[in-house]
Design a protein around this nucleic acid. Sequence first.
DNA 1: GTAAATTTGTGCTGTAAAACATTGTTTTCA
DNA 2: TGAAAACAATGTTTTACAGCACAAATTTAC
Lengths: 233, 233
Amino acid sequence: MTKRLNSSLKPIEDVFSFWDVMTPDERNFIQNTYTVQHYRKNEVIQMEGDIPTHLMVLASGKVKVYKTGFGNHPQIVRMLKPGENFGYRAIIANEPNSTTVTAFEASSVYMISGEIFLSILRHNNAFCYRFLEEMSFDLAESDARTVNLTQKHIRGRLAESLLFLKENYGVEEDGATISIYLSREDLANLSNMTTSNAIRTLASFVNDEMIAMDGRKLKIIDEERLRKTSKLG
Amino acid sequence: MTKRLNSSLKPIEDVFSFWDVMTPDERNFIQNTYTVQHYRKNEVIQMEGDIPTHLMVLASGKVKVYKTGFGNHPQIVRMLKPGENFGYRAIIANEPNSTTVTAFEASSVYMISGEIFLSILRHNNAFCYRFLEEMSFDLAESDARTVNLTQKHIRGRLAESLLFLKENYGVEEDGATISIYLSREDLANLSNMTTSNAIRTLASFVNDEMIAMDGRKLKIIDEERLRKTSKLG
DNA sequence: GTAAATTTGTGCTGTAAAACATTGTTTTCA
DNA sequence: TGAAAACAATGTTTTACAGCACAAATTTAC
């Protein structure tokens, strides 16, 4: 089984989206030094406060990036899908990790040494620019999240999260069921509310016929209205 | 008077902190093409939604960077002091501005053409890397702000803001008065609360002898306790 | 295959903070 | 210099949401 998982893993040159701007030498170097790590559901991949060692590329699975605030209350700040990079911000800033990363489901991660990463950044301008671009998107998203979470009311925040999940992870073959199954608690930590309120508000959305639920499967049935709810509360 | 202001303005090579990583050619090019803009108190420098045209460097004064949320309620996401760059994120991301920038007080800004900026980013690796570094700090700050604003209670948020203002802008000769005079409204927009609550909470801090007030002059007299309040509410 | 643990669902209560209203105070500018 | 506007202060009311307790359902573990 494990073998099968490994053999079915997409090779790093297909997963790491900045492969195309690297030189043959750089590619070789990474090919010869990268490692793969497999994580089980709920396993911690990176810990807040630890010294970062690797640029990581999610090969398969889904992970959450979160900060632990006062009273151990986590706030999810990013959710990644295969092909996305993480762990590199702290390397560039030369700081301890500012976030914890945990696997939502069984996930595989390509690990590229931080020193090699920095060295490529410092020698390959196109590579550096691509990361700059990526960060400039992430920064806008982060600022937008700040405003969403502080200014929207509970219904607006949850609606926003559901739409984000749909956009980010897509839907099943039925065209409506969001392709990620989160616990109510994770949904709450994404939307800055208590678990009870996530449950309650989901129920109210079902009642309003904006979504349908089957356990953790959430189906968006009136996206229009959900979008309105996200905007106006 | 205006002449005096102009003549007392620090030259761009002293203000723009990435000058040292530029080539002589690049420096020349910027020297020959940059412009200076002066803004009066409360004047808008950059507008949310507009197409970005220039990398801007604050030469003198103080400015706020904010997003306008639902119900026209602004959330300040950054406050700049001389030497800091702004307006460049949207250029890199090739998006409309995601924030509005307004002068707190009379400010002067060096304007560097977006095309020239992009061209240097694409040819000068050290220059590109410095911006990458800057963004990696900003991104961590933005995520931290999200957690602060969503999880801390009103006293904690205001205390946090006061400490930030002191760290960012420093203090007057008395060693205690914060060197920026904000309206209660701006303080509220920085701390995600209503103006009345900013006023009330400030008064309560005075009562608790953590700060002293004289109009807009805020003096931190018990930083220890203010820090504790910021952490624990 | 049953116990234990985790997750989900619901109701109730208290409260932090928004919203609103009013008045006093300072700035701005014809 | 006097009216208007902006800002600061404070009291009152309303409400959105957290916190808690508990029950039911589902998952995990042995």
